[in-house]
Each structure stands twice: as C-alpha cells, then as structure tokens.
Design a protein around this nucleic acid. Sequence first.
DNA 1: TGGCTTTAGGATATTATTATCTTGTTTGAT
DNA 2: ATCAAACAAGATAATAATATCCTAAAGCCA
Lengths: 138, 138
Amino acid sequence: MYYSKSAKYAIQAMIYLAESNQEDLIMVSEIAEAYKIPKSFLSKITRTLGKHNLLKTTRGRNGGIQLSKSADDIKLIHIVEAIDGPEAGCERCGFGFDACSDDEPCPFHHKWGHIIKDAHSFIKTESLAELLAESLQE
Amino acid sequence: MYYSKSAKYAIQAMIYLAESNQEDLIMVSEIAEAYKIPKSFLSKITRTLGKHNLLKTTRGRNGGIQLSKSADDIKLIHIVEAIDGPEAGCERCGFGFDACSDDEPCPFHHKWGHIIKDAHSFIKTESLAELLAESLQE
DNA sequence: TGGCTTTAGGATATTATTATCTTGTTTGAT
DNA sequence: ATCAAACAAGATAATAATATCCTAAAGCCA
C-alpha cells in the first residue's frame, strides 16, 4: 500500500465515526471489531488522532470517541500526516534517485511524478464526507 | 514510496546497466557507489535479479553483471515483481477495506483505485529503454 | 599453480513497523 | 463509596525490512 497500515487503520476508524451519528460516542473496541484491527493498536492510533485534534475522546463508562469536527472539514491528508508524519503526504517523485526535481528530473520524474501528484492531490482534497457520499452513489 | 526500497535499488541498478554499453560487465560495487546503496545489500538484490533472468552475472576477475536481454524487453514490473514478489504489481485498490472489489467497492474504490491502476499500468508497460529515452528528452 | 578479484550464499545485526500486555486514570452507575 | 467500564500511557514482544559480515566458489592472470 501507499501509506502505512497504521494510516489505513486510522482512516478506517475515521470513516466509521463519520458514518455514525456525530453525537454518539463510539467505543474503540467496536471499531476494532468491525474492521478486525487489534484493539490496543487501534487505541494507540486513536490517541494520536486525538492529539492532532481529529477526534475527541471521552473516558469512563459510556465513554468513547467521536469526530472533533464535521466530516466535511477533515481531509484524508490530515489523517495520514497525523499518523505517518508530515512527509507522508509530500509529492516528491520518490521512485528513483536522489537527484530528482523539476530541474534535474530522474528517469521517472515525468510519468511517475504525475501519478504521485494525482495520489497526493486526492488525499489532499478529499474529505471524509465526500468519500462517504461517493461510496453511497451506487 | 510505492514499492520497497529494495525494488528501488533494483531498478536503479538495472537503469545503470541499461545506460552502459550492453557488452560491458559492470561491477556491483560500481553501481553501489554510484547510487550510495550498501554494496552487500545490492549484491543480494542483483543475485535475485539474476535468478529471475533479468541479468547475467560473471564471477571472477573482470567479472560483473550485465542485462540478460535488451532494455526494450525489460519492463519495470518484471523488476518489481522479482524483488517484492508477484503481489507487488497487483492492482487491487488496497487503501481501504477487506471488502473491496468492483462489485462491493470500498469508499476509496473509484478514485483511489484509478490512481492505483495508473501506477500499475505504468510499471507494466514501461520498459527500461523507454524510461531512458524519456529522461533524455530535455 | 597460486594469488587476486569478483559474485554466491548464508549467518547475523540493526531498525522500523506492527502487535500485545499491564497498569493508571477518568467517569458513570449502583 | 465502590465498582466496573472505557480510554491513556508506557513497557515489552513479534515480525518484516534493511544492512553487514564472513566464508565459499569461480574465473583471470602472472
């Protein structure tokens, strides 16, 4: 995959929350079960998402997690960068060589760089809300 | 990056060979130095490429490696699959969920799947020779 | 032949990622 | 107040990817 497994888990969790009623508190264990993600591992991920203000957490009985803002305002890149670090969303060509820029293109630069840019602009512009809307369209 | 670091090293080595005179035997250490790849590590990779018949190896003094066939006939996918395994070139959507197929698309399926297909068809159709030709075009 | 060079191959080490476990803290319910 | 439920946090373990090291085998050359 393109990004880390952790980032994938993070996105799955965020989608789960976006699909639920936004007022509800959802338990981490519920999401973990739904997507067969190790619970403790997911819990660590949701903590990170919480620290990056992408979700709110509530402890104690009946506690859980929920989106911290509207699904419209959460882009995939926010999630990916929260988990994989700010470099993850960067649009360098990356396939080939150290010397690779628009000035000094590596053999891959044009064709591959184009694909990378598509990927980057996808996660940069796509919000959780849009994602859900599209998946329901058929 | 999209594929493993090993695959990237492999491609770099193959490009180096494609750029050289095809009759020449090139030492692994020369390539390793050129791209700052750990020599023993690259050596392991070239052995794998050799086993997959992508290059020929000659031992002993004045030995080295060379492409086993014309750069036209070597597609990137051959290299990637030799190193990362046959799954690496596969075009599953992969971002999202277990249940993800054209019939049962995950939220990412359409947009992300499209990007994946572009990437896949790039490595599937692009040969070493084409790659070099394009990089020289400016 | 003997010695040097170069790849082959396997053993081992390091690092990053993913997963698990244990204990602590917060909160609601009884 | 006490208990159980739920997330927080850090320690530890397992796995995979990357890197290093050492000895063997092959081939050239004096």
